[in-house]
Amino acid sequence: MDLSPDSIIYWKYGFFKINATIAMTWGLMFVLTIGSKLIVRNLSTEINRSRWQNLLEIIVTKIEKQIEEIGLSDSKKYIGFLGTLFLFIAVSSICIIIPGFEPPTGSLSTTVALALCVFVAVPLFGIEEQGVRVYLKSYTQPTVIMLPFNIISEISRTLALAVRLFGNMMSGTMIVGILLSITPLFFPILMTLLGLLTGMVQAYIFSVLAAVYIAAATRVRKLEPIAKSNVKGAKS
């Protein structure tokens, strides 16, 4: 039994290779892109619209609303990144019901890649929102002593993101694999259903945590002037 779809290699040339993770990701990318394109092709701006368009609108508006609720007011700016995170993880989790499908999120490489994306995106959005100096200064808050702890926090939370998703997805697949060898008929179906639920929850957790990190990184500057004015008020 393979612990990760990385080990299923279809093609290899030196350092380059195409394994199940990459192939399944391409498959998901194809399905998501073509599906979106097909539905979006006949977009209606009137009140009457197709059911598929309605479904997409519900998904997109829900994601947008969720981002806003987390505290990112300009949700349209972040929906590309956060929405894609959610959709990719959610769709890859749903697709486990397809026989022979290996979820790419069950690979630690994928989850690390996604976590790295978040790890890079958080400071990028933070710097874009409040500038390099202010953002970097936020690592020394409340005192300079906290700098190493903040950095460790950044790294550890990224690691946690990756491992959490990997662990959940991998465990689901693993449990189904183990149960198939013990009780091959009924029980694995229940576990697959549980895996679907776990997958959706993980997609939600991953994207919400990423949103929270971004919100935390972009919100510092907004709180800064209030803190300064409070200090001045206390001195006078």
């Binding site: 990385d6 993770t21 990459i22 998501l32 979106s36 929906i79 490489s109 994928t110 890649a113 996604l114």
Partner: peptide, 22 residues
């Protein structure tokens, strides 16, 4: 290699979904 490939794949997916969905 898979990490790098998945990173690139993910960024491409972000661009594609931005372009064709959001």
């Amino acid at each position: 290699f898979t990490i790098i490939a998945q990173l690139i794949n993910f960024l491409i997916l972000v661009w594609l979904l931005k372009r064709f969905l959001y």
